[in-house]
């Protein structure tokens, strides 16, 4: 840990400001709380909102896990993890169960979370109504008055054009029957995990200066039509490394001849399954 930094980079006054916003967000689940987002030593779009929320939540005893699209070893995850190793000196882990704070970009870990864990989402655009109604003054009013018919217009357009609800990520949800919320661009496969989750879920949007939250065991319902119900989707395949059929899969192109493989997007989940002896179609043990 570098002595030149305050613990977890942000100064105490900033952390207090963010914690206040977090408490308010937890008190009104799904409501977007404005906060005075700071410049962070990374560009917007790289998780400045999530990093600020994580910094405000971290204590020296915490164990931090950072994932980017489920993976622990991609650029975004590695740089944010190293950032907190340097500025906070907290323990880090790649194992979901060991972490007390998990910062995530666009995935919820496959392994069910438990009470006491905090999941921090990086959010690019917190306003679910943004692309339907560009005026912020108007969308705030719509949230205040629960005028959410427009959200269904988007889903209607999906069905009219594609025959089914084609929205596959950032799928809008309704929290405790009140606020409509953008769950950040997680695949809709993860939407059911938002609901009734024992962990605290915090959402930080740095550029848009908004924080919102889901306290533990909050009811979260994905919007749909009666005759076109919500369906979580994933690739119709098994992981080629660990053989898992129930996890969310990435499709990877492996050569120039159209060869492709599927593997778990959650690297920790995949590795722990392989350690336990599960083997997929293209696992090194099989191919070698």
């Amino acid at each position: 840990m570098s002595e030149a930094y305050t613990f977890a980079y942000l100064d105490d006054a900033t952390k207090r400001m963010i914690r206040r916003a977090l408490l308010k967000a937890l008190a009104v689940p799904g409501y977007q709380v404005p906060f005075a987002s700071r410049e962070m030593p990374m560009p917007y779009g790289w998780g400045t909102g999530g990093v600020q929320v994580t910094a405000a939540c971290l204590t020296p005893e915490d164990t931090l896990k950072v994932i980017d699209q489920g993976a622990d070893d991609t650029t975004n995850a590695v740089s944010i993890r190293r950032f907190f190793e340097r500025t906070a000196g907290v323990a880090v882990s790649e194992h979901t169960a060991e972490a007390s704070v998990i910062q995530t970009r666009h995935r919820i870990p496959e392994k069910p979370l438990s009470e006491g864990q905090i999941l921090v989402y990086q959010v690019p655009i917190p306003e679910p109504l943004r692309f339907l109604e560009p005026r912020e003054s108007e969308t705030r009013k719509m949230h205040a008055l629960e005028e959410y018919g427009l959200m269904h217009v988007k889903l209607y357009e999906d069905i009219a054009r594609h025959g089914a609800i084609a929205t596959s990520y950032a799928y809008p949800v309704r929290v405790e029957g009140r606020y409509v919320m953008d769950p950040s661009p997680i695949p809709k496969f993860d939407n059911p995990k938002l609901s009734n989750n024992p962990a605290i879920q915090l959402f930080g949007a740095g550029r848009e200066q908004r924080i919102y939250a889901l306290p533990p065991y909050t009811q979260v319902v994905s919007l749909d039509f009666e005759d076109h119900p919500f369906e979580p989707t994933k690739a119709e395949a098994a992981c080629d490394l660990c053989g898992a059929t129930e996890s969310y899969l990435d499709e990877v192109i492996v050569d120039d001849a159209g060869g492709r493989m599927f593997c778990c997007s959650d690297t920790d989940f995949c590795a722990s399954r392989r350690d336990a002896g599960h083997i997929g179609r293209l696992a090194p043990e099989v191919v070698a």
Partner: peptide, 27 residues
């Protein structure tokens, strides 16, 4: 009108705003 939304969506918006949630009926 909402210029970016289909004719059906435009007509259906008020229905959905008052709570219609059945795609077939709205259409």
């Amino acid at each position: 009108l909402r210029m970016g939304v289909s004719a059906g969506g435009n007509v259906g918006e008020r229905l959905m705003a008052v709570g219609a949630r059945h795609y077939g009926d709205i259409r």
